[in-house]
Design a protein around this nucleic acid. Sequence first.
RNA 1: GUGGCCUUAGCUCAAUCGGCAGAGCAUCGGAUUGUGGCUCCGAAGGUCACGGGUUCGAGCCCCGUAGGCCACCCCA
Length: 428
Amino acid sequence: MPTYRAPRGTRDLLPADRAVFDRLMRIAADLTARYGFRPIETPLFEQTAVFERGIGEITDVVEKELFRIAPRTEEAESWALRPEPTAGIMRAYVQHGMQTWPQPVKLTTTGPMFRYDRPQAGRYRQFWQFDVEAVGDAGPAIDAEVIELGHRFYTEAGVRDVEVLVNSIGDPACRPAYVETLKAHYRGHVATLPPTERDRLERNVLRLLDSKDPDMAALNAGAPRITDHLCDACAAHFESVKAHLDALGVPYRVDSGLVRGLDYYTRTAFEFYVAGREGQQQALGGGGRYDGLVELLGGRPTPGIGFGLGLDRVALVLAEQGVVAEVETAPLAVVVGADPEDTVGRLRVATLLRAGGLRARADLGRRKLGRQLEAAGKDGAHFAVILGDELADGQVQVRDLQAGTQRLVAMGDLIRDLARAEGSHKHG
RNA sequence: GUGGCCUUAGCUCAAUCGGCAGAGCAUCGGAUUGUGGCUCCGAAGGUCACGGGUUCGAGCCCCGUAGGCCACCCCA
């Protein structure tokens, strides 16, 4: 067992893993560009208050999962690693006066998030999210646009059977009354509530709705639904979001038990799952509308909507579904030589090829030719450029490692020859 | 944060009743002159996760810790 290892809940993305992430990030960047979102980077840590105010102090994310940074001096500011990107981006929106930009401001970012909870497969203390935020448009059309974008990301990534769950969780005009109605419903059955659920009754009743406790099933079935208690404005908004989703052909299912764990959400809430694997653990992504957040962070009242998609989980599902991303990392050519000691010659030719724009490696180990060729083959190289006596006539052997054929090529023609071969390889 | 299962070489796994830590793959080297994939030979690779206890003797039994996984909690 090694002396040092990656901290609990973190992992190394080895080249094969990293290639999968690169591909996902490329898809995200390409997709968001097409939809008019512009990339933004905010710090990996913020003043703790940004998260406490924004996300809500009585949420699990802040209460027990926030990665707090120990202050270095007594008067130091209190910082925490970001558990999600939205609060930081909205902080930036306010700080830089983005309300003076053409609205809506559409932003995207992809990067690591941090939550101090107990690790499990697909659940890490450092995990990656692809995030999108559209600020300054009250919807409902843009709600559907954002949901459709999220859904399309999975499609382009190659994830099969992704299902969208949507709900409306009301707004300050109607949610408080609904919360009281819901509390009243459960209070009538306090005695039958499991201990953990009883504890949540007064603190956050909405959470009882998505409880997986079998004893709660019957009770939840009879519980009043938020969608039956929306104010007129929220109800109309929700209907319109659904109509837009229908028009766009996005497959979705209304789940009136869907609530979100962060306080800032209003009205539209949605999550993405692989069909048949609903249940909080396996969420591939989620998001919603947060019309009160900018104001909470000191800005003018500004509506907004966005989502965060978990890249680690997407990678996990892709692996489960057997989707493999072919990424070209193998060199086009490896320069080998008959004289093991002539590293100068091999490196010089490789440098020449690289200067010509080709992916080339030189075998700098001092081993015999056979070993060099063997290593080149294992590396997945298409060609081996073999340096030998022919150099005296200004020629090298170019061996096609897959076909097992080889021919003499003049040094002066080498770059053009290999470049042409690369092109024909790519096209079959 | 709660409960359970697990941890032996880089990877996948063996090791009889408590009695000398092994294999396959991968890595590196060799098989008479400048040609890979197959084959053969060899080398290297271990604090048996870590710490304690029981025992003549512990990879194996007991306790603790760490890490991973599973179910919760909750999120991505």
